[in-house]
Amino acid sequence: MGFKLLSKLLVYLTASIMAIASPLAFSVDSSGEYPTVSEIPVGEVRLYQIADGVWSHIATQSFDGAVYPSNGLIVRDGDELLLIDTAWGAKNTAALLAEIEKQIGLPVTRAVSTHFHDDRVGGVDVLRAAGVATYASPSTRRLAEVEGNEIPTHSLEGLSSSGDAVRFGPVELFYPGAAHSTDNLIVYVPSASVLYGGCAIYELSRTSAGNVADADLAEWPTSIERIQQHYPEAQFVIPGHGLPGGLDLLKHTTNVVKAHTNRSVVE
């Protein structure tokens, strides 16, 4: 069995187990497998329904001669939608809004960016022009300005110390501490036991640490421990890039980060 097929099978099995364990909360999309990078042309966006009122959005972007996937989250909030992270750029984010209108038909009224990198804030200006209120932590807003990236308009308070959590509509926002970046936030959907790890969490097929220019490698494993301790009931975990899975993604990420750190020390 090929690795790609095995990865998709694991996603399907995880979703099936969740649907059985929580039949009222989960209505997993039966329309197909989780979209992969090879299936999404740059400039297009796919939506994948995880649970009743919960979707991931998947886009792709060219970077350094390669094409990478990027995940975000959409959560229903009454007759409105909360968006977590842009679709990595203005063109993708405009396509995301169009796809949401086509498939869901509810307005996106608020959006949260989970850290300051372009795959999370690139497209904020498109959201703002569409009347979406954009939010991020003060740290993310400051770092985005320093980096020359787009800056969300509103500040999220109460997320300055490791372990801080605040309720934001249908989700809980959690600051686990520094990891992929010093400002990275985690998003949890309690009604569906869905954990969105953003770039602080890796997919299972990833074996290298990737972009760690703004990471705190020493603190990252401790931050992941905080996530595990705060959300032990999480059933569906979405990484910032690639295929979702279960809580095993947290341990896998820790292993990859520690291996990278150990290699760096040896070198």
Rank of each mutant, 00 (worst) to 15 (best):
K251C: 06
I20W: 07
A59H: 14
T114M: 03
L247F: 05
F26R: 09
S191Q: 09
W55R: 01
T140Q: 02
A178T: 08
L106E: 14
I17V: 05
A87T: 01
A130L: 14
S155M: 14
R141K: 14
V126D: 04
V11P: 12
E33M: 14
V194I: 09
H180M: 01
T60G: 13
P69A: 13
N255C: 06
R76W: 09
L24R: 12
N184T: 02
G72L: 01
A144M: 09
L82N: 10
S193D: 08
K258C: 09
R263C: 14
T222A: 12
D164A: 10
S31R: 13
A59F: 02
Y48N: 08
A94C: 13
E99R: 14
D52R: 08
I17N: 04
T109Y: 12
V11C: 13
T14E: 14
P69D: 07
I40T: 10
A133C: 09
V212S: 12
L6Y: 05
L127W: 02
V212M: 11
G158E: 13
G72N: 01
T153M: 07
R120I: 01
E225T: 06
T109R: 13
V45C: 03
L9P: 10
E233P: 04
P35Y: 11
A25S: 14
Y12C: 07
Y12V: 10
M18L: 05
P221H: 07
L249K: 01
T254V: 13
N149M: 15
A59T: 07
L143T: 10
G123I: 03
H230F: 15
D79F: 07
T114Q: 00
S16R: 15
A200K: 02
V11L: 10
N211E: 14
V171Y: 01
S7Q: 06
G245S: 05
P138M: 07
S208K: 10
P107T: 12
Y34F: 06
A215Y: 04
R141I: 13
R46L: 08
G32H: 05
E150G: 13
Q235N: 05
G198M: 04
L24W: 13
P41Y: 07
A218K: 15
I100S: 07
V75Q: 03
G245M: 01
E147S: 13
D64H: 14
S162K: 07
L249P: 01
R46N: 06
P244W: 05
K8C: 09
A90H: 11
I20R: 11
L143Q: 11
G198L: 03
F236V: 08
F236C: 08
A87E: 00
D52H: 05
S27Y: 06
M18S: 06
T261P: 15
T253E: 01
R142M: 13
S137Y: 04
V42Q: 13
E219Q: 11
L6F: 10
G245L: 01
E39K: 14
V146Q: 11
G89K: 04
Y202H: 15
A130V: 10
H117A: 00
E99P: 03
I74D: 03
S223V: 08
V265M: 04
P232H: 06
S7N: 05
T109F: 08
L185G: 02
S160A: 14
T114C: 00
H230K: 15
V45K: 02
A234R: 02
E99A: 13
L159K: 02
T254F: 14
G245T: 02
A200L: 06
A165H: 05
P232E: 08
Y231I: 15
S62C: 10
R167S: 06
S160C: 11
K102P: 05
L5I: 08
L195M: 11
S181N: 01
A19M: 15
L24M: 14
G242I: 02
Q228M: 13
H260L: 10
L47C: 02
G78R: 10
E145I: 11
G169D: 04
I50P: 04
L243R: 07
A19E: 08
E145H: 14
L217G: 06
G246D: 07
P221N: 06
G158Q: 14
G158C: 04
S38R: 09
N255Q: 15
D216S: 13
C199I: 00
S193Q: 05
E101L: 15
S161V: 14
K102A: 14
V108G: 02
